[in-house]
Design a protein around this nucleic acid. Structure first.
Lengths: 203, 203
DNA sequence: GCTATTTTGTACCAGTCGTTATATAACGTC
DNA sequence: GACGTTATATAACGACTGGTACAAAATAGC
């Protein structure tokens, strides 16, 4: 009945994400967006609502495609300890190759807009919990099969890994050098090895 | 000879910092700034240059007054391990009390503008190195007096602490809850205790 | 082919952006 | 008190901001 869309919604969303990701919310203008998305302003407003709504869509899009899929993939394809190590390895590789210094859209958004937008804050908080949960699950699984020190508190270790991950993403936007980022990850990952774990953190 | 300034430069700088700190660079307008600083636009331009130059001034101001002074104070007033623990304690206390969720101006800037401004990037990178150096120095000192596990690699431990710190500041902008933030810090700090340190991370 | 419904392109809105020209005012020095 | 110099206040600049009114165009069902 109605006139059909002439643009690819998914491609437009990716283009918008690219803009917000590299410039941030405030520094991205509607002209930037319509230019990159190859869509006129009225079409944008018709399809996505205003700038804030579009931003939320791109963020949700990123969380689903970028982070969630990665966690699922690692969880399914690798044994527990390797899943954790590979996760950090991929993040660091991306950060080093990232010549634009775009960093992580999730972390960028956590700092720029989470404090001012409750809806985005909920999305972001949920994703942090997912990541922490991934770490915790992998630690428990690794302890079960003996590849991870059984004396670690899985919850503590998951939080430590989450903190390390966020630290890497912050540092990567300033100094995206592989040796520095690995220097951050290595001591945290070293704790996983069963041979090293003669300690037990108190609760 | 010339007409004297009518405004307090330090107070104006603090007001500008408050603006940039809570809203970020892009989302802060010159009207916001002139309003908060109680200075007219021409005076602002005359005294500080353009918006970017003013931002750099406020950032440098913050790094000197906010972070550097704290490190010096902790280093002088407390024994090594307590200095590290107190550092995290203060950060977490501030984060929890921070109802505006302003977070840390250094970390906010590292994400918003470090990728796009080389001058700020240098300031920020240097400060990260200072913090890491503080941690490393305290670990070494603590090992010397027996309050910190002698088997830790001081460089590794410093990096781990830096990562944890940055992670806390990221998470605090989304979920500034004391228990969560302490959950991030605790496992990292637990590694310091000599009784726990039966492990040695490889280099 | 007409109608109902949605999308698109053009053209534009009022408001705000960062910045500045101009004129006046306040000072130390002569 | 005039001079050189710098700070202030007013007012405005052109460019750009997020967002829209309007009409033309494209479809499916009748």
């Amino acid at each position: 009945m109605p006139r059909p869309r002439e643009f690819d919604e998914d491609a437009a969303l990716n283009a918008a994400m690219e803009c917000f990701w590299s410039r941030g919310f405030a520094a991205t203008s509607l002209r930037d967006l319509t230019g990159a998305m190859k869509v006129t302003a009225p079409s944008l407003y018709n399809a996505f609502g205003d700038k804030e709504a579009l931003f939320r869509r791109t963020l949700a899009h990123y969380l689903e495609r970028g982070t969630r899929d990665r966690l699922r993939r690692l969880e399914q394809e690798l044994p527990p300890r390797q899943a954790i190590e590979q996760f950090f390895k991929e993040i660091i590789e991306h950060s080093v190759k990232d010549r634009q210094r775009k960093g992580c859209f999730l972390v960028n958004s956590a700092l720029e807009i989470a404090p001012h937008d409750e809806e985005c804050r909920a999305l972001i908080a949920e994703q942090f919990e997912n990541i922490e949960g991934f770490f915790r699950g992998r630690v428990v699984a690794g302890q079960g099969e003996g590849s991870i020190s059984p004396e670690l508190d899985a919850g503590d270790m998951a939080r430590l890994l989450l903190g390390t991950l966020l630290g890497i993403r912050v540092l990567a936007r300033t100094k995206p050098r592989g040796d520095l980022l690995e220097g951050l990850a290595r001591p945290a990952l070293a704790l996983l090895h069963p041979l090293h774990g003669k300690k037990k953190s108190k609760r």
